[in-house]
Design a protein around this nucleic acid. Structure first.
Length: 260
DNA sequence: GGTACCTGGAA
DNA sequence: TTTCCAGGTAC
């Protein structure tokens, strides 16, 4: 898969597969399965996934936020962060763990007292009782955006369960190009892009942090941060694939996709 | 073994 | 809309 055209060709082949059994149970199966079908090795590289584009897979109709990337604040800018913050500002979750999993928006405190406070050069995570917990320089975030999102491909899948196992039909895809980091920062200030804390303490007392995540509430607003949006799978002939596909074997390996 | 990333959700 | 949450890996 050396070119973007190859990449789009693969997406079309994957669409023609119809519903594919998930390669991993749970929320993240949709992304893991798509990456497997595309032949992308799982990674935690903070950069574009394939042919210079960041790839996002989403379930159709999910009203949840879309994670753009995770990033901890600079170590030097964390007066009240990590284990201390979870212990003192968190709660006990249903599994009996001390946890702090919250979405934080500008100006208005959430039910745990957190809000974001922007100024000209930075954005701070503020708690109404303890004050500034951490600060991100805006240039620091801008660099993350620019590194990760030279281009973005969003893939939407229909999802259904067959005998209790989730299956995905990757049927829509859009290519966003021409990233504008200033527009991105405007989306942040407007509260369209928010920040999630996703921490809890393990039995050892260590902080299990899935990553402090910058997320967008309505991914269609991403158009404001990219010059161009192009549908990649708008071939209407493909829409004739019945939703109730006959069972097909476990998703083919990458190198067998060429035969489709 | 802990930290910081990746991949994504539901009620 | 807000509150709260998931399975993974590199180093």
């Amino acid at each position: 898969m050396d070119t973007f055209e190859d990449f789009v060709s693969r997406l079309r082949e994957i669409k023609q597969l119809g519903h594919v059994e998930t390669h991993r149970k749970g929320n993240t199966g949709i992304g893991k399965t798509l990456e497997d079908l595309l032949g992308i090795e799982e990674n935690n590289i903070p950069g574009p996934d394939a042919v210079g584009a960041e790839l996002k897979a989403m379930r159709e109709g999910s009203g949840s936020l879309t994670t753009l990337f995770t990033k901890e604040p600079p170590r030097s800018e964390r007066p009240f962060w990590g284990t201390k913050m979870v212990n003192e500002l968190g709660y006990v979750d249903d599994k009996g763990r001390q946890a702090l999993k919250v979405t934080i928006r500008p100006n208005t405190p959430n039910n745990k007292g957190f809000y974001l406070d922007y100024d000209d050069t930075s954005v701070s995570v503020v708690h109404e009782d303890v004050g500034v917990c951490a600060t991100y320089p805006l240039d620091f975030l801008r660099e993350r955006f620019e590194d990760k999102f030279p281009q973005l491909v969003m893939v939407f899948a229909d999802t259904k369960r067959i005998d209790g196992v989730e299956h995905f039909w990757y049927k829509e895809a859009y290519h966003l190009d021409g990233f504008d980091s200033d527009a991105f920062l405007d989306l942040m200030r407007d509260g369209v892009i928010t920040l999630d804390l996703r921490m809890h303490l393990k039995e050892s007392g260590a902080n299990r942090n899935r990553g402090t995540a910058w997320r967008i509430m309505d991914e269609s607003r991403l158009d404001e941060a990219f010059e161009d949006r192009t549908p990649l799978l708008d071939d209407t002939e493909l829409d004739d694939i019945p939703v109730t596909t006959k069972p097909h074997p476990v998703a083919p390996e990458q190198d067998t996709l060429d035969g489709y």
